[in-house]
């Protein structure tokens, strides 16, 4: 189930979730970065939790709820994060951004009522590399989005 829609897929048995999302289902918003779970460009949410989709085998995910960046149309929280990223100028080349937005979305989901401090936020972003921004504007924008929630 991706973004609320069930997709029957025939794929190679060991294809990663990332490969299937991009190549079989056309969710190109989920980016291929390092392919080994270090850069976070491929971050999606599985049942609300952030995950590197390059480190999951697609066929083991068939009964899970997967959200990609494309779910933003129906998710006001993601939109709020995106708006803050735009306002803060946190987007440069943008390749890491969908993954980072999803990581922040996962953090907000997971935190519930708890306050998200800068330290918690940075710790949460440690699975995502951004090579353009030095993370500064990303942290500023994300904190604003978290406070709003």
């Amino acid at each position: 189930m991706v973004n609320g829609v069930s997709h029957p897929v025939v794929c190679k048995p060991f294809d990663t979730l990332l490969t299937v999302l991009r190549e079989d289902l056309g969710y190109f918003g989920t980016k291929f970065g390092c392919g080994i779970g270090y850069c976070g460009a491929c971050t999606v949410l599985i049942d609300g939790k952030s995950a590197h989709s390059c480190c999951l085998i697609a066929t083991t995910m068939s009964d899970r709820k997967i959200s990609t960046i494309e779910s933003c149309d129906d998710d006001p929280v993601i939109q709020k994060i995106q708006d803050q990223f735009l306002k803060e100028g946190a987007i440069q080349c943008g390749y890491c951004i969908p993954g980072i937005v999803m990581t922040v979305r996962g953090l907000i989901e997971e935190s519930g009522q708890r306050v998200i401090t800068e330290e918690i936020l940075r710790g949460h972003l440690d699975g995502n590399i951004c090579r353009c921004s030095g993370y500064a504007s990303i942290v500023r924008a994300s904190l604003k989005a978290c406070v709003d929630e």
Binding site: R22, Y27, F28, G29, T30, K31, F32, T68, I69, E70, C72, Q82, F85, L86, K87, G89, I91, G94, Y95, I97, P98, V101
Partner: peptide, 21 residues
């Protein structure tokens, strides 16, 4: 001042097409 970049939204929404895509 800070001006919102025109290619920002497409990038944030994952809709911008990169070479990889």
């Amino acid at each position: 001042r800070s001006l919102e970049r025109s290619d920002g939204r497409a990038k944030a929404e994952g809709k911008a097409e990169y070479l990889r895509d």
